[in-house]
Design a protein around this nucleic acid. Sequence first.
DNA 1: CGTGCTTAGTTCAATACGTGAACCTATAGT
DNA 2: ACTATAGGTTCACGTATTGAACTAAGCACG
Lengths: 395, 395
Amino acid sequence: MARPERRTVRDVRRGNRGMLLRTLYFDGPASRHELTGLTGLSAATISTMTGDLLADNIIVEAGQVDSDGGRPRVLLRVNPAYGYVIGVDVAETHVRVELFDLEMTEKARVDYSLRPSHHDIELVTRRILAGIDVVLADGGVPADRVLGVGIGVPGIVERGQDTLIHAKTFGWDGVPLGALMRAGTSLPVFIDNGAKTMGQAELWFGAGRGAAHAVIVLIGSGVGATVVADGVVMRGSSNSAGEWGHTKIALDGRQCRCGGRGCLEAYIGAEGILDRAGVATRTTDWQAALGRVLESDSQVIEETVAYLGMGLANLINLLNPERILIGGWAGLMIGRDLLPGIRAAARANSLAQPCNATSIILGELGPDAVALGAATLVLEEFLDTSAPLRLHAAS
Amino acid sequence: MARPERRTVRDVRRGNRGMLLRTLYFDGPASRHELTGLTGLSAATISTMTGDLLADNIIVEAGQVDSDGGRPRVLLRVNPAYGYVIGVDVAETHVRVELFDLEMTEKARVDYSLRPSHHDIELVTRRILAGIDVVLADGGVPADRVLGVGIGVPGIVERGQDTLIHAKTFGWDGVPLGALMRAGTSLPVFIDNGAKTMGQAELWFGAGRGAAHAVIVLIGSGVGATVVADGVVMRGSSNSAGEWGHTKIALDGRQCRCGGRGCLEAYIGAEGILDRAGVATRTTDWQAALGRVLESDSQVIEETVAYLGMGLANLINLLNPERILIGGWAGLMIGRDLLPGIRAAARANSLAQPCNATSIILGELGPDAVALGAATLVLEEFLDTSAPLRLHAAS
DNA sequence: CGTGCTTAGTTCAATACGTGAACCTATAGT
DNA sequence: ACTATAGGTTCACGTATTGAACTAAGCACG
C-alpha cells in the first residue's frame, strides 16, 4: 500500500537510461540495433541515449561486427575504467578492503587482521579508511574516480537518519559507522549486513544471476539468508529481514548462542554441527573438524541433512522462490557432499507445487564474496542513477 | 534482477493519475489544493488531471469548505457509483457472490451452499455465473457498469497462460477456472487464493491499512499467511508464496493432513487444537468445541500459545514486518483470549531488534472477508490503470 | 458598495521525452 | 560504378510536467 512516487518526464529518461546501462552491463557488448530489441526502446531513443552515454564516457565502443552486405554493427559496452568501486568486509578476524573497476575486476586489496575481541569501532574505522588509501595507491586510481564505498558488517544494520549497527559479538550497540566514515572520507558510503552483501554478490555475479525470486542461504559459524523478491533484496521494515538462523525448528530445542532455544543455527551452523558431533569447539580448526565429521559421522550427517532440508522446505513453502543457493564456508562443504540428500529432505518437507518450482544449488562465489557484494551496492546505485561521476573532494 | 520496463511519457501520466486516484480514494475527499501536497504534483497538473477525471465521471465534487477570507475549496472524491465490483468466495461449504460499489459498500449478495464433496468445477462455475446475474439484478446494476469479478478459491492458483487451480480438498488438479469463466461472461476475471484475498482485504480495509511490510496470518481449519513486502502481496515464482501452515516446527512431529509431519497447521489449526485436546473432530461443531477448549483446557492453551508464538517469531525474524495480523475464525477466537500470551511467546522466540519493530494485533474484518478481498483485486486494477470504463458485452 | 486582501483554481509558454518516418552511412556483391 | 542491404541519425509531432501569470470567489473594512 505504499503509494508510488510522483513522476515527471525526466524520470522516464532516468529510468530508461538506467535500464539501457543495465542491459549493456549484463548482456553487452551489443550494437545499437540489438539494444532496441533488448530494451524495447526505439532506434531513435537508443541513438540519442547512447550518444549521451558516449559523451559522458560511461560507455565506449567495442569493435565492430561486419554483417554480410550491410553497414557493420558498432558494438557498445560499459567503460570498465569509467569509475571504480570499493568493497569492505568487516569480519570477526579481519578487515578487508578491495578495489574493483566497473566490471568488478579486482584491482587491489588489503587485509588487516583483527585480534579477537578487539573490535573497537574507532579501530575498525581507521583500518577501513587506511585500507581505502592503500588500495587506491596500489591500484593507481585517483580518489575522484571512485563511485563509492560499500561496507559489509556483521549484525543488524539499522537504516535511519544515521546508519546504526548492532552487532552483539563485536560489542557494537548502535554504532554510527556511517557518520564515522563520513568524518574520514567524502566518498559515498553504503553499509549493509555482510550476509546480505554476500547474497547480493551471488545474485548479481554468482549462481543467482537472472533469478527474480531467490533465497541465498549462508551457513558459516552463523546462519543467515538473503531473501530476493521480484529481483530486489528484501529488507523488511527495519532492514533486518533474513534472520533465518534463529528460526525455531523445535520447541525447547538445543541452546543457541543467541540465548534462545531450538534455533536452526544451533543445529546446522558450523558450531552446532561440531557440537552435535561431540567435537570440542574451543581450540580446534573448525574447517578441518567439519571435514572430518562430514566424512565419518553418519549420525550427525543424517541429522544435518534432515534439519537443513526442513529449514529449506520452510523457505520454499513460505516464499516460493525459483532458486535457493547454499553458500558460506560451511554451507559449501555440507552442500558439496550432501546436496542430493538435502534436496530430498527439502522435497519431503515441502508442498509439491512450490517445491517443483525451486532448484536448490550451491553458490558459485566461495565464502569470500562479502567485499564483492558490498562493492555491488555501489554498482547498483550507479547503474540505477547512471549519474555522471560526481566530483568528491579527495578523501 | 528483473530489469524494469521501458517507459514513455504516457506511462508518467498513467502512473500519476493512478496515484492521484489512490490518494483520493484513501485520503479523500480532498480539494485540488490539498492534492498538490498529498501527491507532490504541481497545481497545474492537478488541475488538468482532475478535469479529465471529472469529465470521465470517475471523480465527483463533494461539497465546499469555506475558508476565512478566500475562495472556498471544492472537495473532490471518487465517484462510488462510477462502477461496481463483484467478489466471489468459493469455500468448502458454499459459493458466495457479493456486489460492491467502488467504496466497497455491499449492494447485494447471494449464497449457494455446496454439499460436501460436491465441488464439481462445472457446478461451481454455474453457481458463480448465476450468482453474478442475481446480485446484478438485486442491486439494480447493469452488467456494463461492472469493472470485473474477483474470485477467491482454496488451494494453489497457478498464473500462467491460463489460470489453473490445484485444490486437493476439492479434487481440483489444474482446473482452468479462468477459461471456464470467460466462456460464461465477458467481465474481466481475477482469481487468487482465498487466504490471499482475505489478507488483501485486511491490508486495504482492515487492520493492515497503511502497512508497507506486514504478514496477515489466517487460522481456520487450515493455516495460511499473506506476506506483504513493500506494500505488495508477495506471490513468489509460481504464486504459491505464503504457505505458512505447512512450515515444519518439529522433526517427525504431529501428522498433518497434507501428508507431512510437524506442520504448524497440525498444532495450531482448529483441527489440530481440537485433536490435541482429545475432541473428536468427526461430528462436533468445531467453533463451539474450540470455545470450550479455550475456556478450560489449560494444557492445550499453553501449548497453542507456545506453538503460535514460535511460528510468529519465525515470521518476525525472517521477514521483519512492521505488523502481524491474526485472522481467520479460529485465529480470532484464539487471539481474543490469548493475545498477550502470544505476544510474549513471540518475543521470547525472536530477536529483539525485529521484534520491537513489530506489533501483533487481531484482524478487523472477521472471518468472512474473502469475497471483499477478491473484489479488491478488481479495485486494485482499477485504481492502478484508472482506465475509463471499458464496455463489456453484457454477460 | 467598492476596494483591497486572501486563498483556490486555471491557462499558457517553456522544456523534456520517446517515436515513426525520412534520411544518411557503410559495407558486400556484381 | 552501381545496387542491395542493414545500421544508425535527424526531425517534426504528440504528450507530459511545471512555474508564472492570470482568473475566480470569498471576506473585511471603510
